[in-house]
Design a protein around this nucleic acid. Structure first.
Lengths: 174, 174
DNA sequence: AAATAAATAGACAGACCTGTCTGTTTGTGA
DNA sequence: TCACAAACAGACAGGTCTGTCTATTTATTT
């Protein structure tokens, strides 16, 4: 594997596991067996790597979501399966929550470059629910419960917010 | 004002405005006109100060919430007013979101000391809604929408998630 | 085989951070 | 007035961080 990909792979793991500010360039290059000069040949700064990480995570996350829900046929079952996807992700990633929301709290609020990537990701998620539902109000309602499910399960290190959100969605959806 | 209080006052402002990791001890003591030795006489570490900051913020936040909703008489209007409180806070604090949720993303996930304080705060908020509603499922539903309203308005730097959540709550509440 | 590009190791600058320490000044109560 | 405690200023240790630099080695291409 090429150095650039090794770096992205390592950043993908470490940024999500440890957070952005707690992960230094030195650890990234050590773990990916790359020289520091090579790193700065491929990425002009740590912030640059962060943007690429978020883009990679964006693709990864939606791919997995779509794969996970692909078995479901109806809109309703697809949406309910999306909550099951959250449960699976919490399990697989030890309740580390959403990389995008975590970064939102880590960056200064005037960092528009990264903020834009985060907003784009969440807009796509909002659109994901709107795609399946004619009732846009209902779609937003579900989007808000979905976001809560993510952040609250991270906070309480428990699946109850997801299962509760899912059961609420099950009743409000027609 | 005594040094200890000056420190807490400064930390209260800076931690919320800049975040925990972006605020150094040196800035705190400079802004509060206190010697470094004095700081470490009152707080054994930065983490120690962080816990006290969260406790102060907890009291501050619930005080303001209760004051803001005190005019409302019924459970329903009190709950709806709680969302108006969020709007006012976003306005006053420039969409910086919830200090507790922000810290959740900043600390390593094994920091149980701070995590406990965060969980306690959110449990109290969950209890706040349960206090007004016999239907505990409904109370949790509102709690989840309330949390979404906080985090999403911070994310989009916009009040729409709050007004949308509020209007949803207005329809699901009896 | 020679030339060019890419990757390597790792020292270094310059700036931050937390926490400790020394020594001085101020304030208060006996 | 004397003693004691509290706050002061600020140097310092020891560690972190990002990003730059030199100099060497490996690959690839012509």
């Amino acid at each position: 594997m090429q150095p650039r990909e090794r770096i992205l792979e390592t950043a993908f793991t470490l940024f999500h596991k440890q957070g952005y500010n707690s992960t230094g360039i030195n650890q990234i290059i050590a773990d990916s067996n790359v020289a520091k000069a090579s790193f700065y040949q491929h990425f002009k700064s740590k912030e640059d790597l962060c943007v690429e990480f978020l883009n990679k995570r964006h693709g990864f996350w939606f791919d997995r979501l779509n794969k996970f829900t692909s078995k479901s046929r109806t809109s309703k079952t697809k949406i309910l399966a999306s909550f099951d996807f959250l449960i699976a992700m919490n399990e697989a990633e030890n309740f580390r929550g959403c990389s995008f929301l975590n970064l939102l709290s880590e960056i200064p609020s005037d960092n528009t470059k990264i903020l834009n990537v985060i907003q784009r990701h969440k807009n796509d998620l909002r659109e994901y629910f709107r795609k399946y539902l004619a009732d846009k109000q209902l779609a937003d309602h579900i989007y808000l419960l979905f976001e809560s499910a993510i952040i609250e399960s991270q906070l309480f290190k428990s699946q109850w917010p997801v299962t509760k959100s899912k059961s609420i969605v099950n009743t409000i959806i027609n």
